[in-house]
Amino acid sequence: MATEVGVGMDPARPVTPDAGPSFRERMRERGIVSTILWPTVSLIAILLIWEWLSKTGRVDEIIVPAPTDIAEAFVDLVQETFFWEATWVTVQETVIGFGAGVLGAWILGTLIGVFRPFRLAFYPLVVVFQITPRVALAPVFLTWFGFGITSKIVMAATICFFPVLINVVLGLETVDRDARDLMRSFGASKWEEYRKLTLPSSLPAIFAGLKVAITLALIGAIVAEFVGATEGMGVLIKTFNFQLQVAEGFAVILALSIIGLILYGITEFLESKIVFWRGH
């Protein structure tokens, strides 16, 4: 379940504005039954098989605890203060890292998209960094910024920087030629053209990048916590697994997917409000 959030998102590929319909659009197209009923049926089926495998001893219950045990562990966990403290730390790292990464990507992406010298100088470097597995930088950031929250924020920011950057540049490229001509025929200044045409035109592409980035930011924060941290959900997962409290470990992973879904949902909600014309 924990991997659900990151599935099918290849960080090396720019995300197009038409990356996919939103949840609501899917609902409208296919109807409530096919959108919600079928995935629920398959999920219940998987959980039942899992439960059966674990409870009947076909797999070791200590290594693969049954879903009911995980649920029980989850219910216990959410009553603990240390769990909420860890959650708060990880959410902070994710959101601040996301914000910093997006801001940086937006600024550099705009410079690359608007000024040709910037593009020539930096875009090839961006492409090279794009192929580098950025999680490999986590130990470096640990050395630079220590065991505290900073190294996690930097990791989250770094990992979500590139998909946003690529989409900012892509968004700037998709501006309608005629619309540009129209603005110029009115004698619009560069700034007016950017504010009234280029920026809004590129928002759908930018939001496609943001939706990828928010899930990547969470991955970045957790990976950085694995590498070296004193607090956070990544630390909890590691600790529980070392103590062979696998059910508790899974419970934290379940909590992480819920957080991922909430963050993604917020981004998608903002998209539907801000880029309301998307798809038309």
Binding site: D178, A179, L182, S185, L197, F276, W277
Partner: peptide, 13 residues
Amino acid sequence: VGIMFQAPVLLPW
């Protein structure tokens, strides 16, 4: 001077 194109070129937002 006013210009008009083949496409309406209206801003969707």
